[in-house]
Structures are given as structure tokens and as C-alpha cells.
Design a protein around this nucleic acid. Structure first.
Length: 858
DNA sequence: ACCGCCGGGTGCC
DNA sequence: ACCGCCGGGTGCC
């Protein structure tokens, strides 16, 4: 676990209604049972500073410069002094030790986690034997006295500041001339929360300057690129072939100098030949990347058009897909030896990559693509190294990685590594993040439509992957960027901006190229259709609502609303289900045993239709299991966690967990099968949908529609009248295997007569990237907690390639929990738009309780 | 002189 | 280290 505390303020807005995006029901519950900050001690308070001495310089090779930051590392095993505190420079080389008299109280403070200590060498860096170091102690306010006393007991005294200057002012871009105490007053006035929010929102905007040069792709790319894609290609190629120093490095009289850390080295810092392509969804990140692979093929040359025209053979069955079976194109084995590009992506877009390779690379060209996926994947380093492209998923990558001895992916020296939907590695503790960091390549790319989800911490993982020194080490990232920015330091923010700008290309659908919109998309119109329940339905609904109110009301009285949160959610889900169709609702039963309760809970989570994600792999749940602390994960993921830690704890709530205490999902057959047989009945919402669909078919039989719901069982129910009225339809939900998914999408996108005109789509099935442009109508059957999830869903058809205006119809049941959800959504949106204040966990809980009241009208 | 003072040896933790 | 500290050599003026 890394220590950390400072979340970006915006993360405070992720509360339980913001289920979409990344939150899942199990995570919500975890967040409530937890004391919000899931990290180690809060350290944002400056406890005090003191000047110490670094001794023993002549025994070590590590050097430091005037104003350079150093890190303090405890050495409890040191044979001469168990209080030893080692001093290391930014590159981790040992510089010396803290003099033992001061090391004694420091060791106590560090070992007992009373404070974290940070060092900056103010001057005297050329001393042979010792040098001063300014030490600053950061920690919780409540530890202030303990730290001061400990220092005093050893005959020292902690001051408050160095010469009236805040210590973190040393992080400035000014070549380190302005050092401690002499530094500018500029950063003395912290940014307001509002300024910070604005700056943050704009972090990825306007990154276009100097990135407007265009480049034609290699001839082998048979699709013509749009201007913005040519720009991206040019930018990516120049980054890969660049000899520029990485951001914040400057050459100065033969030395390489990092202006943020004041660290200088003789050797040129490692190049960062890659970056983040953060274009909005639908702008063609995949195509651009394929163009890059083909155009900056080996040794900076494009993939050649071969003389001998040979037809490609596709063998996409079962797991191997090799385009072309001929010899490796010449020139491939020269140079550094790396020839293969590794693409890691979520399962949901795997087939999209294959399709696009097929579509955009000329058929008479040999490009060896290997799909490293499935049980029969060939674990051969040699085979993989000889490919042009190897495609795999995060899950395969991490499962191989967990299997240390047998991960060929980690033994290949890749020409480049591309992480698609790279934001999924935002959690540094997740296995897949660790697996990704161990891949070897000079060129590293992250493709992502959402580079920062809610905090700077996400960005740290990206830097870590890009190996952008020194930000790939947590301590330096925190000291130089994260903490200064979170504290509102202007220089810190400036640095962050320069950093992001230097390695990111981002355009949105609204960006302009030479005054023109990047992409002219057809219109997108939203209608809300209010549905009135029939008398019978209303009666049933009111009864359920009354019962729910009674239960929740009692929790409120007892003050146990938060401890019974799962039950509250269950009640809300039940009400939402009633709005759709009474047949959706399970018989709650009265389980008493823990096991039964857990089975109930996991069933609820899995059947909520929200396409739950596993908090470890962040992908759809595979072999779902629930822990005793009621959190749901993939069995392989959580087993890996348990295996890798001595005292395994739940990643979501830190409760102790054991493999044998995992409870499996019993499967669908346990469920009372939804009444899809003879005794099927309709509902007001289904009727409303059907009348829309029939009317649409009458007007234009070629129009295709998406019918979206969060409840897969609702989709089961809708299938009945669709069949009855002779609609041809497909279906896409989270439970489907990769193959069937791809087939469903392919069938739907096909425009030939008789092709399906309707797709039943589960709200979050497959994540982003799916192309459903054949549809021009979207029916949102039930409101999502998070409107962004709905927008994302619509994006799948409202994107590049859509030729018709897109009409979205949202069904909302009048006088119901659905209407209340919409109201709360609106209110929250206003709040987010207005300001983005830091909410305390207490307020958050309060807000959640108020929302429950509003939803239940209590 | 059980001192002071000198000057050489020596040096992180 | 052009320091401090250690410990041996030394000892009136």
C-alpha cells in the first residue's frame, strides 16, 4: 500500500448516485462502510522543519545539487545503528546518512508513522564529507506535539518554516536558482478551490498548439485519414522518433538538468518515446494507432508494399489470427531487435481491433497479427517476438503475470506497447497495473478517452507506465506534483500543466482544426416520455413503496441507515424494477444464515443489470464470488490478491479475507425464472416501447434502434413482444462471451435486408468503444443513476460514421422513484456546474441520506 | 602529570 | 577535514 491522502476535490462528488462510470454497487457499499480515505495517514499538515546534516558522502556515489530534493529512507537493519536514516537522491542512489544524533529521533518518528520526512539540500552540495539538508516533517495535526517532543528530547528544536518561505515553493521551473528562502512570492497565494477546478477541467484542453502538422500514413493503410487523424499520426511519429529530452529536462553545460527536482546527471535521461492519446471517443484512436504501426514500422520506415501480391489468410478460429503466412518482411530483424507492437485492451474491444486491422490494412500486405488470447494461446517468446502486432487483454496479461514463470509477454522486448482504454490501470495496487509496468519497450502509448477520472492519483499510474522520470516513483510524484497541486500551489499546477501538455494529445468532438469542427456529427435529440402506470401496476407499486418506506424509515429512526445500506439499495432496485415490469422483481424471502444473505446479495448485485465490474481487474465479473464482507470480485482476481499477501485483506474495505470464505454465485438457474413463457404479461413501459417501435417501423422499416436497460431480465421480457410482432433483433449484454458479442454487433451493423433492426443493449455492456452506428434511435428503458453512463451509451451510435440524426427517447414513470432519480440528477448536475467544493465524508453521508429520503419521499 | 599541551592519526551509519 | 575527536608523547623557564 502506498501512503496517500490527497484526492482531488472533484472525487468528492462521486457519491452513491454516481454509480455509473466506475462505481458499482459493491463499491458503493464499501465506500460507506469505510472511513472514506482508504489510504494511510493524512499528511497534508506541515509539522515543522529543521536543518540536519548528511554525513558519509565519500562512501557513496549518489550526488545532489543545490536545491535538490532528496528522500529519507530508514535502514533498521544497519549493523552500526538501527536508527540509521539513509539519504538518497532522486534517482535512488545513496548519498549518505543523516547524522546519528538526529537520526535517533527521526527513526522513532518515521517508524511510528508520526510524520513523513522530506529533505532538500539547500547548499554545500560539493562538500566532500557532509552537507546540510533541510528536513520538513509532514503529518497529521494530532501528531504535531509527539513529533516536536521527540525531537526536543534529543536536544533539537523543530522550527516552523525556513526563512519565511514555504518549503514546497522549491518546486519551481526556474532552473533552481531561486532556492529556499529566496524563492518568489508567486506561489505564496494558493489557488482557490474554484480556480483549481477550472484549471483541472482545462488540463486536457487546448493541447493542440504545435500539434497541427499532418502526416500521410504509409501506403499500406487503405483508409484515408481525416485531418485530425493525420495530425495525431504526425505527432505520435515525431514523439516516437524524437530525440528531445523528456519534459522538465534541460541540457546545461554538458549536464542534464531536471528543473523540478534540481537533479543533474551526466547520462542523458531515458527518452519517453510515447505519450497519451486522449482524444474523445469516436475520433479514431484505433485507426490512428494502426496508421502509426504501419507508418513507423521498423527502424522508422513504413511497412513496405510487397512486390508479390499474396492474399492474406485469416484464421480467427480458435485463438490464432495470423495475417499472411509468408516470411517476415526484410529489415525486421535489424536494429534493436524489437519488431512487435503489443496492444493491450479490454476484452470488449478486442474484436474491434481485429476488424480494424482487417479493414484498414491493404489486403495484399503481410502484417503478422497474433491474438494472444484464450486457453490455447501459444506461450512462446519467439513466436511473439516475430509478430508485427500482438493483441491481448488486460486479464490475460495479468493472469500470465501472476503466473510469473510463464509470462512470455513479459520476456519480449517490444517495439512499442499500446494500452487501449489505458485509464483502466489507474489503480496502482491492481494486479493488471503491476503487470503492465513490467512490460519492456522503449515506446509506450496510452489510448484513453478519459485520462483523468477523478484524481491526480490516476495520472500517477500513467506517468509510471510511461516511465517519465522522476514521476514514475510515488514519492517524487507526490512531492513535486500531487501535493503542491492539491494544496493549491500555482507553481505545482503550472508544472502539472507543462507535464501533461508535453506528452498528451487530446481533441474533443468540439475541437476545431483551422476553424472547422473536427467532426461534424448529426444532431442528437433527447425526448423524455412519461409513462403512466396502469391502475393495477400503480397498486402493486404503492404497496412495495409503502413497505420500503416503512423499512427505511425504521433505519432512519434507529440511525442505522448506513449499516443497512445494502438493504436500502435492494429496496430501491426493487422499486425501479416495478417501474419497468412487475415480473422483474424477485421474491425477497427471509434468509437468516450469512451464506444465504451473501448469495442473496451477490445475486442482487449481478441481477441489478448494471454490468458489475470487478474492483480488481475493473472488467466485467468473471466467475463472480462474494467475500464475507460482502464485496464482489472475479474469483481469479481475488484469489490472486489472497495468494500474494500474507495477511490478505479485502481491497475495498480492508477486512480480512480467505479463499475458503468466498461464496460463489449460484447461477441463473437458482432464480425464479422470469415469466417469459405462456404466462407472460406486458407492462405500461413495454407497451410504450412497442408502440414507438411499431410506429417507427411503419414510417421507415430500415431504421434501427437500440433498446437500453440496466436490467438484463427486463431485456428477456422485452424479447417476447419483439418476437410476437415479428421484429428481427440482436442482443448485447455483459454476460455474453466475446464471440457472441462480436457476432451480435456485426449482425446489427449489417445493413442488408432482413438484418436485425433492434438491439437489446444492457447499459454498460462491453464498455466504451463499441460501434453501433447502424442505430439512429435509442430507447432508454430506465434511468441510470449516472447520466454520464447514458450519454456514453448513446455515444456508441452517435459517433463517427453516423449519418442520421440520433433520436433518444427516455421512458420515465410518472410519480415514481424514477422521477425522483431524474430530479436528483439535475440538482447534482447544477451543483457540479456551480462549484466544486471539498465535501467532508460526514457531509457526503448526510447528502446520501437526504437522497434516500428524496427518493423514498420520506 | 590522577594534569595541560602538542601534534599525528583519523574520519558515516 | 583549512574541522573535531582520539589517544600517545611529553613536561620549567
Amino acid at each position: 500500500m502506498t501512503s496517500n491522502s490527497c484526492c482531488h476535490p472533484s472525487s468528492a462528488f462521486i457519491d452513491f448516485l454516481d454509480v455509473g462510470g466506475t462505481m458499482t454497487i459493491s463499491q458503493e457499499i464499501a465506500n460507506l462502510t469505510e472511513d472514506s480515505g482508504q489510504d494511510l495517514p493524512e499528511e497534508n499538515v506541515q509539522i515543522g522543519s529543521i536543518q540536519g546534516t548528511v554525513v558519509g558522502l565519500r562512501y557513496y556515489t549518489g550526488t545532489v545539487n543545490r536545491g535538490e530534493m532528496v528522500s529519507l529512507v530508514r535502514q533498521p537493519q544497519n549493523p552500526y545503528d538501527r536508527n540509521a536514516v539513509m539519504v538518497a537522491n532522486v534517482y535512488g542512489s545513496q548519498v549518505g546518512h543523516i547524522k546519528k544524533e538526529l537520526a535517533a529521533p527521526m527513526a522513532y518518528i518515521m517508524d511510528n508513522n508520526l510524520a513523513r520526512v522530506e529533505g532538500v539540500v539547500p547548499y554545500g552540495e560539493t562538500n566532500k564529507f557532509s552537507m546540510p539538508v533541510n528536513l520538513t516533517f509532514w503529518g497529521k495535526e494530532e501528531n504535531r506535539d509527539a513529533v516536536h517532543n521527540q525531537i526536543r528530547r534529543h536536544g533539537f528544536k523543530l522550527g516552523t518554516e525556513f526563512k519565511g518561505s514555504l518549503i514546497w515553493c522549491t518546486t519551481q521551473t526556474s532552473l533552481g536558482r531561486d532556492l529556499l528562502g529566496l524563492s518568489s512570492k508567486m506561489s505564496a497565494i494558493p489557488l482557490t478551490v474554484e480556480e483549481l477546478k477550472n484549471a483541472f477541467d482545462k488540463l486536457f484542453d487546448d493541447l493542440m498548439e504545435d500539434k497541427t502538422r499532418e502526416m500521410e500514413p504509409a501506403e499500406v493503410v487503405c483508409t484515408s485519414l481525416l485531418p485530425h487523424q493525420k495530425q495525431a499520426l504526425s505527432w505520435m511519429t515525431s514523439r516516437e522518433n524524437s530525440n528531445d529530452l523528456p519534459p522538465f529536462w534541460e541540457e546545461k553545460s554538458g549536464l542534464y538538468f531536471n528543473v523540478l527536482t534540481n537533479f543533474a546527471v551526466k547520462e542523458r535521461p531515458e527518452k519517453v518515446l510515447g505519450g497519451i492519446l486522449a482524444d474523445d471517443m469516436g475520433l479514431g484512436k484505433t485507426l490512428t494507432t494502426i496508421a502509426l504501426i504501419a507508418s513507423n514500422f521498423h527502424n522508422g520506415k513504413p511497412l513496405p508494399l510487397e512486390q508479390s501480391v499474396r492474399s492474406r489468410k485469416f484464421d480467427r478460429n480458435p485463438s490464432l489470427w495470423v495475417a499472411g503466412t509468408g516470411k517476415v518482411p526484410s529489415g525486421g530483424s535489424g536494429g534493436s531487435g524489437a519488431r512487435a507492437t503489443l496492444i493491450v485492451c479490454p476484452l470488449s474491444v478486442l474484436s474491434n481491433w481485429l476488424d480494424q486491422f482487417e479493414q484498414h490494412i491493404r489486403a495484399d500486405v503481410t502484417l503478422k497479427v497474433y491474438l494472444y488470447y484464450g486457453a490455447e494461446r501459444i506461450r512462446s517468446v519467439k513466436l511473439l517476438s516475430e509478430q508485427d502486432v500482438v493483441l491481448t487483454t488486460y486479464n490475460v496479461l495479468s493472469s500470465d503475470f501472476g503466473n510469473k514463470a510463464n509470462s512470455p509477454l513479459h520476456k519480449v522486448n517490444w517495439l512499442r506497447v499500446v494500452l487501449d482504454e489505458g485509464h483502466v490501470i489507474r489503480n496502482p495496487n491492481a494486479l493488471q497495473s503491476k503487470a503492465v509496468l513490467e512490460l519492456q519497450s522503449e515506446r509506450r502509448w496510452i489510448l484513453s478517452g478519459t485520462p483523468i477520472q477523478n484524481s491526480l492519483k490516476d495520472l500517477y499510474m500513467l506517468m509510471s507506465f510511461l516511465k517519465l522520470k522522476p514521476f514514475d516513483v510515488k514519492e517524487w510524484w507526490s512531492r513535486i506534483i500531487q501535493r503542491p497541486v492539491t494544496m493549491g500551489d500555482r507553481v505545482g499546477l503550472k508544472n502539472l500543466q507543462v507535464l501533461v501538455k508535453g506528452i498528451t494529445l487530446r481533441r474533443t468532438k468540439n475541437s476545431k482544426v483551422a476553424g472547422r469542427m473536427l467532426v461534424q456529427l448529426p444532431e442528437r435529440r433527447v425526448f423524455v416520455q412519461h409513462v403512466t402506470l396502469s391502475e393495477e401496476e400503480r397498486e402493486e407499486y404503492e404497496q412495495v413503496r409503502k413497505e420500503g418506506r416503512k423499512v427505511i424509515g425504521r433505519y432512519f429512526e434507529e440511525g442505522t441507515i448506513m449499516t443497512n445500506y445494502a438493504d436500502v439499495l435492494a429496496i430501491l432496485v426493487r422499486l425501479r424494477q416495478y417501474c419497468c415490469h412487475p415480473g422483474l422483481v424477485d421474491d425477497p424471502g427471509t434468509p437468516s444464515e450469512l451464506r444465504e444473505r451473501l448469495i442473496n446479495k451477490i445475486t442482487l448485485v449481478l441481477n441489478s443489470g448494471s454490468d458489475e465490474e470487478c474492483a480488481i481487474c475493473l472488467d466485467s465479473l468473471r466467475q463472480p464470488v462474494i467475500t464475507y464482507c460482502a464485496h464482489v470480485y472475479c474469483r481469479p482476481c481475488i484469489c490472486e490478491v489472497i495468494r500474494s499477501e500474507k495477511q490478505a485483506r479485502c481491497p475495498l474495505c480492508r477486512a480480512q479475507i480467505k479463499t475458503k470464505e468466498l461464496v460463489e454465485y449460484p447461477g441463473e438457474e437458482m432464480q425464479a425464472g422470469a415469466a417469459t413463457g405462456e404466462n407472460w404479461r406486458s407492462s405500461s413501459k413495454v407497451d410504450a416501447l412497442m408502440s414507438n417501435l411499431l410506429k417507427l417501423r411503419n414510417e421507415d422499416p430500415t431504421v434501427k434502434s437500440l433498446v437500453v436497460s440496466q436490467f438484463t431480465r427486463f431485456m428477456d421480457l422485452i424479447e417476447v413482444p419483439l418476437r410476437e410482432y415479428g421484429f428481427s433483433f440482436t442482443r448485447l449484454d455483459g454476460s455474453m462471451a466475446q464471440k457472441t458479442r462480436a457476432k451480435a454487433i456485426q449482425d446489427f451493423q449489417d445493413s442488408s435486408p432482413g438484418s436485425p433492426t433492434i438491439m437489446l443493449l444492457s447499459l454498460k455492456a462491453g464498455g466504451v468503444g463499441i460501434n453501433l452506428t447502424a442505430a439512429s434511435h435509442v430507447f432508454m428503458m430506465d434511468p441510470a443513476w449516472n447520466p454520464a453512463a447514458e450519454d456514453q451509451c448513446v455515444d456508441r451510435c452517435h459517433r463517427l460514421g453516423q449519418s442520421r440524426d440520433v433520436v433518444i427517447t427516455k421512458f420515465i414513470v410518472k410519480d415514481s422513484v424514477e422521477e425522483n432519480m431524474v430530479k436528483i440528477q439535475k440538482k447534482k448536475q447544477e451543483l457540479v456546474d456551480k462549484a466544486f467544493g471539498v465535501k467532508k465524508p460526514q457531509d457526503l453521508k448526510q447528502a446520501r441520506m437526504e437522497e434516500i429520503r428524496a427518493l423514498m419521499e420520506i
